[in-house]
Design a protein around this nucleic acid. Structure first.
Lengths: 163, 163
DNA sequence: CGGTTTAGGTCAAGGTTGTTGACCCAAGTC
DNA sequence: GACTTGGGTCAACAACCTTGACCTAAACCG
C-alpha cells in the first residue's frame, strides 16, 4: 500500500490543504476587514468559541503570538463588546476571556458557510467523512493540539462543578 | 441531524484545522529558514510538485501573490538549482516552471513527515479516512480549487501527447 | 512581614513580507 | 507597424509581528 519512493497522491492533498485553509480563513478575514479587524481577531473568536475561559497567556500559547501582538486585537474585541474579560476567581491576576452574546453571534456569522459545508458533507458522505477528516488532521496537528485539547477539557471539568 | 442553532461540534474542528495547518507549514518553514528560505519557497515547491509546468502568472494566481512578491523567492529557487525555468514552446514569453532533481528531493524531505502521517492514518483508519478528508476539504476550498485542478489536468493532458 | 515570582500591559525600535504604482523589454497578435 | 500580454525591476509604503525594557498588581514563600 505504501510506495516508499514517492506516494505522489499526497502532492494533491497538500495543495488541497492549502486552498481549503486559505478559503476558510479568507472568507472570515474579508468579512472582518470591513469592521477594521483581521486574522488575529478571527482566531481569537474561533478559539474562545471552542474554549471559553482561557487566559491571555493561554491564548498567546495557543496562537503562538506574543502578548504584545495579542494585546491590540484583544483590546479592540473588548471595546466592541465582543469579548468579556473577568478577573479569575482563584487568581485575580488572570483574565478569563469569554465571548459575549454579540461575540458569539459574530463567530456564528463568520463560520456560517463553513458549518453549512461541513453539514452538507456529512449529509452526503456520512459521519465517516468527518471522522476521516479528524483522523488525518489530529496526527498532523501533533503534540500542540493534544496539549491544547487536554487543557481545554481540564478547564471544562473544573468550571462545571461551580458555575 | 442538523442543529440549526448551533452545531457546536464544529468549533472543535475549526481549531483543529488551525493547529493542523500551522504544524503542517511550520515544520517545513523552520527547515527552510536554515537555508534562508521561507513560507513562499515552501509553497512554490509544493505547487510545482503537484503541478509541474506552471507559468509564473499561474503561480501568482494559485498563491494569490503579486509577481513582485513571487519574484524574489522564485529567483532564489532558480539560483539554488531547485527550480528550472524554460521558455514555453508555443509562447516563448511564458516561463514554464519545473522542479529539478534537487528541488524534488527537497520537497520530498520537507513533506516526509506529513506523508508518513498520512500513510499511517490510511493504514490505521483505511482509505475512507483519506476520502473523508477530501470530501470535507474540497467543498471548503471551493471554486478556486476547482479552477486550479481543472487547469492542472488541462496542462497534464496537453503535455502528455508530445513529451 | 518583605522579597521574589507571575500575569498582564505598554512603549520603542526593528524586520519580514506583502502591497501598489510606474516603467521596462521581448514576444505574440491584428 | 500598433497594440497587447508575460514577465522583471525599482521605489515607497503598510500590516503585522518580533525583541527588549520597564511597569503594576496580585500571589507565593521563607
Amino acid at each position: 500500500m505504501l510506495d516508499p519512493c514517492r506516494p505522489d497522491a499526497f502532492d494533491r492533498d497538500f495543495t488541497l490543504f492549502y486552498f481549503a485553509y486559505r478559503a476558510f480563513t479568507g472568507a472570515a478575514d474579508t468579512a472582518l476587514t470591513e469592521q477594521g479587524m483581521g486574522r488575529a481577531h478571527h482566531r481569537i473568536l474561533t478559539f474562545l468559541a471552542y474554549s471559553p475561559g482561557m487566559s491571555v497567556g493561554e491564548l498567546c500559547q495557543a496562537l503562538q503570538l506574543t502578548k504584545q501582538a495579542i494585546n491590540g486585537p484583544l483590546r479592540k474585541l473588548g471595546d466592541e463588546q465582543l469579548v468579556r474579560m473577568t478577573p479569575g476567581e482563584r487568581d485575580r491576576r488572570r483574565k478569563e476571556l469569554h465571548l459575549t452574546e454579540r461575540g458569539a453571534d459574530l463567530e456564528r456569522k463568520l463560520h456560517e458557510r463553513q458549518r453549512a459545508l461541513f453539514a452538507a458533507a456529512l449529509e452526503e458522505a456520512g459521519p465517516e467523512a468527518a471522522e476521516g477528516w479528524r483522523r488525518i488532521l489530529a496526527p498532523l496537528a501533533g503534540r500542540d493540539w493534544e496539549a491544547f485539547t487536554r487543557s481545554v477539557e481540564a478547564r471544562r471539568a473544573e468550571g462545571k462543578p461551580q458555575p
